[in-house]
Structure formats: C-alpha cells, structure tokens
Design a protein around this nucleic acid. Structure first.
Length: 872
RNA sequence: GCGGAUGUGGCGAAACUGGUAAACGCAAGGGACUUAAAAUCCCUCGUCUUCAAUGACUUGCGGGUUCGAUCCCCGCCAUCCGCACCA
C-alpha cells in the first residue's frame, strides 16, 4: 500500500484543476454568483504564514461555494506601490519597478503550491500602468464631481534629509535615517472630500449587518459625530473675535482660559510679529504628526496676552493661550478650557497656575476638584452649582441641550454638529505611486490632464542616490503641454497614497482588462463582494476609504448603486504567532534565534529549549544529560510565547519550507485547526507535525477501506448516523466561520470511522463524504481519496453532501439531573416523553430521593431535551 | 492620552450565546507490537482531599441577578491591537 506523499499528490491535482479550468470565473444565468475576496498582499517578496491563513480561509469559502452550485469569483492581485520598494532601491540599489515585479513573480511562485482556487487570469498589480491609468481616470472624474481639492496640510519634515517622512519613519520623534528631530511642516496637498460623506458613512454602518460589530463601532468612533455649541469670544483689544467649538457648553461658567491651536490664524499672525511666539510655536511643531504623538506630548502653553470677554459676563476676562494639544483640524481650532471637568485642561491649569472653578458636583459629594477632574458619564445626574440656565439637578446631556437652547435663544451661539473625520490627504512626495494627473500652468493654474493622455506613466530612468522625490529632479518628465492653452507647463510630481490603489481594486477585479475603470455589466453581475476577509488592522482606514470610493464611483458612473456598500460581509482574521527564542549578550540585551536553530528537550517532563550546537550531538545521551551540557555552555534559550511573527525577532516560519516538508494540505489544515479564525493562532512545530500525521492517517484509513471487502452489517447504521451529523456540523462550521470547530468534528468522525466495524460499502460512503467535507481545507488529499474510492469526476466540483434529517434524530436522550443547580445524576428517556413524565422519572432517581429525604421538592424545572433541575 | 479587544487545564481550545465546563488536538505518563528504532494501536490525563468516589473546588479577581452563569449586570486587574504618510 502506498504512503501519503503530499508533494506528488499536490502537483498532480493542481495540474488537473488547471486543465479543467474549474476556477475561472464565468457569468451565467443558471447559477447564483458568489464573490469571495481576501485583502490582496503587498509584494514583499516572501509569503508568510499570515498569508497562508488569510488565503486558506478565503479558499475554504470559495471551494465550499463552488460545490454548492455558485459561479465563484475568487481573484488575486498585488498592492504593489509603496515605500518598501523605494527603501530597497535606496538601501541596495536597483529600481523599485524591477524589485516589485521580481517580488510578485517570487510570491506568485510561492503561493501557487498552496492550491488556492484562484482565477489567476484576472491577476493584476496596482503598479501596472493599465491599472493606475484607470485610477487616474477615476481621479479626474472625482475632480470634476467636486470630490477632490487642494489645501495646506501638515507633514513630518526631516530637516537634515530635507524630505517628508511617513509616520513609520519617525522613531521617538527622530527621522529613521538621519536621526534628526522631526518637525511638522505645511505643504499644499490634494484631498478627497470624504468629510462631505461623514453622515452617510456613519448612518450606513447600520446596514452592514454582516460586519463585525467592533469594526462598525471603530468606524463610528473614527467618524466621531458630536453635537456642540459654536460661539465667539469678543476680544478686549477689538480684534477679530475668536470662534470656539465645544461639546460641553454646559461648563461655560467653569471656563478658565481660551486655547488656540499653534496653527490657528491668530497664532500665525503672532508668530510673524513676536519672536517669543515664533519660538514657542516652533517648539510645538517639534515631534510627529500622529494623534498619539500630539496627545502624549508634554502639555505646553503660551499666554498670548490677548484677553477675551466671557459671553455671559462682560466684566469677566479670560486669557488666550496657545496650547500644543489643540488640533487645528478639529472644530474651529480654538476651545475654552474647563479644568474642573476635563483632565487635560486641569493638568494644563495646574501647570500654568490658572483658576479651577467647579460647576457641578456628584449628588452626594461636593468636594472641590483637586488634581483629578470630575468627569461623570453624560447620562449621570449631577448637582449644578454654577449654571446660567437655572439648572439644579440634571444630567450632563440635559444640561448640554439646555445650554445650546439658551445660547440660541439669547443669540450668542448656535448648536452645530461636527465630525472628527478629516478629509483624506492623498498626496505623497514619493516616486513609487500613481502619478496625480494634473498639470501646473503659469497661465491656467492647476488643470486636469486630458483623459486621452492617460496613463501618465512613471519614468523608468530615475535614481535614489539623493534625498527627495526623483520625479521632482527628473530632467524632462515634468515638462508637458498645458491641456488648456497648450503652452509649456509642469506636471504635478506628487503621487497618490497607496490607500487609493486598494480602495477600488475589488471593483476592478470584476473586469480587470476593461478600457474604462469598470465595465458596468460585469460590475452589476459580480458586485458586491459577498465575503471579504482580512486583518483587523484595516478596520478603519482601508475599509472606510473603500466605502467612500465606492460611493464616489457610483456618483461618477463607474459602479451601480447597490455597490455603494461594496462588502456585504466582512471577516477579520487573527494573526499567526510564534514563540520567540532568545539568549542574552554580555550587556543583558536579547539575542534572537530562528526556530530551526533551537532544539527542544524533555527534561523530567518539562520542556526545555536549547541552541542547536555540536556539543549536543552525542550518541545515546538522554535529554537530561544534553540539558546539563547545554546549561554549562550557556546554550539554554528563553522562550516568549505567542508573539506576532517578525523578522527582527526571528520568530518566523517560512511557508515554503513547511510546504516542502509536509505539503500544502498540512499547512492549510494546521492554520485553520488550532484557534478560532478571528483569534491569533500560534504556529508550533509539534502542531504542524500532528496535522501531517492526521492527514497521513486519513489517507491510510481510506486506502484500507479501498482494499477491504466486508459485508454490510449492523454497524453500518451507527456509522452513517455519525456521518450525517458530521455533514451537518462541518457545514454549519464553514457557514459560520467556525473552521476550527469543523476540523474538530472531522477529527472526531475520523476516529469513529477508524473504529467502526461497518461493511465496506458503508465505510466507502463515509470515507468519500469525509474527503468531501475535508476538501475545502485539504483539497489535494481529498481529490486523491475521492479517486481512490472511485468518486466521480473531481471532488472540487462534486455537489456538497446534504445531511439526511431523518438520520440526525436519536430516539432517546440523556438528561442531566441537577439538585440545586449541581449535577447529581442522569436519566435516559424517550425523546418525546412529556414534561410530567420526565419529572416523575427524575424524582424517582436515587440521588434525588436521597436529597429529598422524604420531603417534597420546592420546585422542579424541566427543560425538554436539555436538563432537569430539582430545588430542595 | 483616546479608542477597540482578549482572559477557561501544562498548552491551543470547545460548550448549539442562560441548561452536564473542559469536546477535539498538542504536550506528558503508562502499555502493546518490534532484536531495536521509526511508524502504528490501546489506556490515563482540570485541582484538591496521601488512594478513590456517585466528595469538595474550578472558566483573570471581587460583587450581583437567576432554580441554574464561561455566557447577563456592576466594579477592579492583566495582556494585546489601532490612532489618519506602513501596507
């Protein structure tokens, strides 16, 4: 009998699928369509286990849908623009284009052995001119529709390298390459008007029933709708009043100063006039642009000397401070501070010795605020000591509403709704991205390029030996004719954020070779994505941008209305983790080791990990002896469990080596088996080996059945009953993303099958069903077994088995008997026995009789088919 | 700082979202087969009560609701993730 040889089997069946062309997506009216999409990868050059998990999950769904009679669209492409290609060009030379396409070829080569049911004929990379040219066309349409505009925005600026830095290139406030302190600097940049759709993007979240609740909540918080009061403080010097926005107008009587952003027009004006202000503002601009950097930076303030009048008391003057924690992008870039009820304001006031005025207390505690601000939930009732609308006891929310009402009636303020969501800045001062198709003309200004000139291709003759954007310093690329007047003009040298590329690729997959961004007939048929799968790290930006883009593409006529929410169902999968192996250097710093460089020893039943070393190659030595040798030679390794796989920590496992050692089916089976898909899964060598052993076992069991000849007998029915329950459970598992639960059932059924004394016919049926149920996870092995047992055609296209309802019900049921909520006995009764009878049987059991001790029960709860609880 | 999540045996986890906590797998221990090893098969395996139960305890910690809580409510603790130029 032959043994399970994954490498032979897998190549053979991949060729068979290719030949049969079963994964090519085709439109036809006779079947429902199903579009399953995993977030496409960045072509880093190597696939990692995270990819294997992500694409295996999608493949399970795709293959399952194929065998349940759907026209399946399951495409693959490459998110191919971005900084790593430029970083590589700077670090090791070469060209981003070459680097990227080589990586794509490598990764495709690593991915194909996984046996994914992908329609490779639709493959594209976002750096293909055919793709980004259509993206430029979309941009022009959006520009015309008023969804794109230019304004100033802040970037991270490296003053030594004279270049813009991405957030990830800022480490501890310094540029990663130069080590210089990073500054915030303003540039004129292009923006998508996503904020014009804030309300729509927020309210439509309710329709996304098949999205994880947490993703919807994260988007809701990100959009950040708030209602507050906008009003102006009059300046004592007669200058332009300062308009502020506040979500807590009810605390106006607790105001202690007015704060403005360092980027506020008043601050800018003072900056120009007053060197001290200029110095302070420059200090504020140090540090990165991330919200985190701004929020966690030390609170700094500068008293401008400007004074404003309190709107309710003209004699009450408040100072105007510039404060580094106020964002120009949010609200009006100016606030009033109420330190008693805001911790950040309080810290600021204590630091600069500004007054703290309580405006309300808890109902049962009127201790004045000291160094902890009193910030109760808005729904909580509080006692007001300082309110102008005559409130005594009211919740924060009631007070806010009353205040807005009061201000509107009095005429000094108005209630407004604001969103935290900012417009999407898409300009990047980099080479390896989609060129923004506009032209700067001295006479006509900023004008769109003509569509017939698209794509505006990136020039190939560029170098990365100097800082800055190679498009800027290219001798001729910028030169062009103005599309308006025809005079010599200059191209825009900024390229687009790579998030733009990934905001519409799902639509492009429906017609990847179309001469327009989409083909409406194809989009009408294939959209929406029925199941989208990807990492939780994309919960906000990528998914929100895609929702915006889908709407924009509908407005510009590139997608049907139904595609405005492009992803019907979303699943966010967890990461693949691996333990870290580390030793320490002389200074106590960790030194990391690859999994293949360590050995595991079993010392008195305890697992010990040591470095692989010649000293440990010793004939006949026990693990205990080897461990002693390792210990005396400093070869013992510390382990850190469950860390995200990363090259720097060396806790990586290469899928390619796993596939060559065990086969793709083993890798696929393992990444699905050990943890629920939404949670992280820990890769372990033992787990991978166990998965491989199990698949070998299934192969062996199937071969034995194929070679057996046992007559039908009494054990057949039990086996077939289990088979039908397994069909039901595995199917439910796949439908609900409970792949680990499906696999547990498959393990259990394999055990049943192995032990069964049933006849060959029943066992053959059971094993063929097992192969089918396993086929979404282990498609190659399943084909092999299917063939071995004379299954018809390919298992990949065989109709999914259906559980026979009549085989699912048992005649009797075993019920636990609880006494006071503790399980004390169990009874087996007919399934349809009525409640009173069940109660009678339960009460007659010895355990219940003993507990009752002659008394009658206080209460008996019978939950049919589940449990009996006797209260004594 | 703000926001989001997670926590169950030595480990990954399951429990049909209020009804027998620990299915399934890993690791570990014992045994069979074998000259031996590999492979395979069988048994044990939450903790404690020195053994054992049809005994007690057990789902991060502390309370609560309920006949009954891993699941619902309140309050803590710990860990992980995201924060707009990484993809």
């Amino acid at each position: 009998m032959s043994r399970y040889s994954a490498n032979e089997i897998e190549a053979k069946w991949q060729e068979a699928w290719d030949k049969a062309g079963i994964f090519t997506a085709t439109r036809s009216a006779d079947k429902p369509k199903y579009y399953v999409l995993e977030m496409f990868p960045y072509p880093s050059g190597r696939i990692h286990m995270g990819h294997v998990r992500n694409y295996t999950m999608g493949d399970v769904i795709a293959r399952y849908k194929l065998s349940t009679g759907h026209n399946v669209l399951h495409p693959m492409g490459w998110d191919a623009f971005g900084m790593p290609a430029e970083n590589a060009a700077m670090a090791i030379g070469g060209h981003p284009k070459e680097w990227t396409y080589n990586n794509i070829a490598d990764m495709r080569g690593q991915m194909k052995p996984l046996g994914l049911s992908i329609d490779w004929s639709r493959e594209f990379a976002t750096c293909d001119p055919e793709y980004y040219g259509q993206q430029q066309a979309l941009f022009l349409d959006m520009l015309e529709a008023g969804l794109v505009y230019r304004k100033n925005a802040v970037v991270n600026w490296d003053p030594v390298d004279m270049t813009v830095l991405a957030n990830e290139q800022v480490e501890n406030g310094r540029g990663w390459r130069s080590g210089a302190l990073v500054e915030r600097r303003e540039l004129t940049q292009w923006f998508f008007k996503i904020s014009s759709m804030s309300e729509e993007l927020l309210s439509a979240l309710d329709t996304l029933e098949n999205w994880p609740a947490k993703v919807r909540l994260m988007q809701e918080n990100w959009i950040g709708k708030s209602r507050g009061l906008e009003f102006a403080f009059e300046r004592t010097d007669g200058g332009e009043p300062i308009t502020v926005y506040t979500t807590r107008p009810d605390t106006l009587m607790g105001a202690s100063f007015v704060g403005i952003s360092p980027d506020h027009p008043i601050a800018k004006q003072l900056e120009a006039e007053n060197p001290k202000v200029a110095e302070f503002v420059a200090e504020c601009r140090k540090g990165g642009t991330t919200e985190e950097a701004i929020e966690t930076a030390e609170k700094l303030g500068f008293d401008t000397g400007i004074r404003v009048r309190h709107p309710l008391d003209p004699n009450w003057e408040l100072p105007v401070w510039i404060a580094n924690f106020i964002l120009m992008d949010y609200g009006t870039g100016a606030i009033f501070a109420c330190p008693a009820h805001d911790q950040r304001d309080l810290d600021f006031c204590r630091k600069y010795d500004l007054p703290v005025i309580d405006t309300f207390f808890a109902l049962d505690d009127d201790t004045p605020v000291d160094n902890v601000a009193f910030v109760p939930p808005k729904e909580q009732k509080v006692r007001w000591v300082n309110h102008f609308a005559g409130l005594t006891e009211a919740t924060g929310q009631e007070a806010i509403d009353a205040t807005i009402d009061f201000a509107e009636k009095a005429g000094w303020g108005k209630g407004v709704t604001k969103y935290r969501l900012r417009d999407w800045g898409l300009s990047r001062q980099r080479y390896w991205g989609c060129p923004i198709p506009v032209v700067h003309c001295d006479d006509c200004g900023v004008v769109p390029e003509k569509k017939e000139n698209l794509p505006i291709r990136l020039p190939d003759d560029v170098t990365f030996d100097k800082p800055g954007n190679p498009l800027d310093r290219h001798p001729t690329w910028r030169d062009c004719a103005c599309p308006c007047c025809g005079k010599p003009a200059k191209r825009e040298t900024d390229t687009m954020d790579t998030f733009v590329d990934s905001s519409w690729y799902f639509a492009r997959f429906t017609a990847p070779r179309a001469e327009t961004p989409t083909d409406l007939a194809e989009a009408e048929y294939w959209m929406n994505v029925d199941q989208y799968i990807g990492g939780i790290e994309h919960a906000i930006l990528h998914l929100l941008y895609s929702r915006f883009f889908a709407r924009a593409m509908h407005i510009t006529g590139h997608l049907p209305k139904k595609a405005c929410e492009p992803f019907d169902a979303l699943f966010t999968q967890g990461m693949v983790t691996h333990e870290i192996y580390q030793t320490r250097d002389a200074k106590g710093r960790p030194v990391y080791h690859l999994p293949e460089d360590v050995i595991e020893l079993n010392v008195d039943g305890k697992r010990q990990v040591v470095l692989r070393h010649d000293l440990l190659v010793k004939e006949g030595a026990s693990d205990e002896e080897l461990f002693l040798i390792a210990k005396s030679n400093d070869l013992v390794v510390e382990t850190v469990p469950s860390a995200k796989m990363s090259k720097s920590k060396k806790n990586v496992v290469d899928p390619v080596s796993i596939i060559s050692a065990f086969g793709a089916d083993t890798a696929r089976w393992f990444v699905l088996s050990d943890s629920p898909p939404e949670r992280d899964v820990e890769w372990t060598a033992a787990g991978a080996e166990a998965a491989h052993k199990h698949l070998s076992r299934v192969y062996r069991i199937a071969s034995e059945i194929a070679a057996s000849d046992v007559a039908a007998n009494a054990a057949d029915e039990d086996l077939l009953r289990e088979m039908h329950k397994t069909i039901r459970d595995v199917t439910n598992g796949i439908e609900s993303f409970g792949f680990n639960a499906s696999i547990a059932k498959l393990y259990a059924f394999t055990n049943t099958l192995a032990k069964s004394k049933a006849g060959t016919a029943a066992k053959t049926q059971a094993a063929k069903t097992l192969a089918q149920l396993m086929s979404p996870m282990t498609p190659h092995l399943s084909e092999e077994i299917w063939q071995m047992l004379s299954g018809e055609g390919l298992v990949a296209t065989a109709p999914w088995p259906v559980a026979d309802e009549s085989m699912l019900v048992d005649d009797t049921v075993t019920l636990p008997i609880q006494i006071n909520g503790k399980r004390r006995a169990e009874i087996t009764v007919a399934k349809d026995l009525d409640k009173a009878e069940v109660e009678k049987v339960a009460l007659s059991t010895e355990a219940v009789q003993r507990a009752l001790d002659g008394a009658s029960p206080k209460k008996v709860i019978v939950v049919p088919g589940r449990i009996v609880n006797v209260v004594v």
